[in-house]
């Protein structure tokens, strides 16, 4: 079977029949669980032990954050629709849905920037209290993940625009999608643990 092998290493048969990069992405997501687990754990250790500065209830605007949480949740819908489109070979819809995902991601990030700014105006910052420290670092890490995902999806969109994304490459979209959904489910947890459950 190797005699014909002027093929990329990736296309060789694998032991499990699964693609290397997809296995890698799932391993990464398992690993990332521990990353966010450590950050959420840190947040919860200091939960309620705030000596100075505004308390969570002083600054949180639940309706506002609910809207941006909903935007991120719906971006996951757009993401699966983008994947379904490329799997059908529908590149036109792929591009539309990718833009939707990135757009909703940007709404979320914009919301976070606005939120951080207004919290700052109310006197909450990285250094003022353990709440400021743990809140900004946890949500900042998540925001960085979202931003990275937006860049990734826009790169795929550019490639699709240049005609480089074909049905045969749906796996590229699928893997980016796995990352995106993961970022979404992390926010499902953060939204509940940090915002909704009262201190």
């Amino acid at each position: 079977m190797e005699h014909t092998a002027v093929l990329p290493a990736e296309a060789h048969e694998t032991t499990t029949g699964l693609n290397h990069r997809k296995v890698l992405m799932w391993a990464f997501l398992g690993s990332d669980c521990m990353l966010f687990g450590s950050l959420i754990g840190t947040y919860l250790v200091y939960r309620g032990r705030y000596l100075a500065g505004p308390k969570p209830t002083d600054v949180f605007d639940i309706p506002y954050t609910s809207v941006s949480a909903l935007a991120l949740l719906m971006s996951s819908l757009a993401m699966v629709l983008a994947l379904a489109a490329i799997q059908r070979g529908d590149i036109r819809r792929l591009k539309i849905w990718l833009l939707c995902v990135a757009g909703l991601g940007l709404v979320f990030i914009g919301g976070q920037v606005y939120e951080f700014t207004s919290f700052g105006e109310e006197g909450l910052n990285l250094a003022v209290s353990t709440f400021g420290t743990t809140f900004f670092v946890l949500t900042g890490f998540h925001g960085t993940h979202v931003t990275f995902g937006i860049v990734w999806l826009l790169m795929i969109w550019i490639m699709a625009k240049r005609g480089q994304m074909t049905q045969a490459r749906s796996l590229d979209v699928e893997i980016a999608g796995l990352y995106w959904h993961f970022v979404d489910i992390v926010w499902i947890i953060i939204f509940t643990v940090v915002y909704l459950i009262p201190v």
Binding site: L126, A127, V137
Partner: peptide, 24 residues
């Protein structure tokens, strides 16, 4: 894969404390 993210977070927290005056 499971252990290194934890030390990464611990080191980030320490680094933030030293660089940005956070309170970890």
């Amino acid at each position: 894969v499971l252990a290194f993210p934890v030390i990464t977070v611990a080191l980030v927290e320490l680094m933030f404390d030293r660089l940005f005056g956070t309170n970890f």
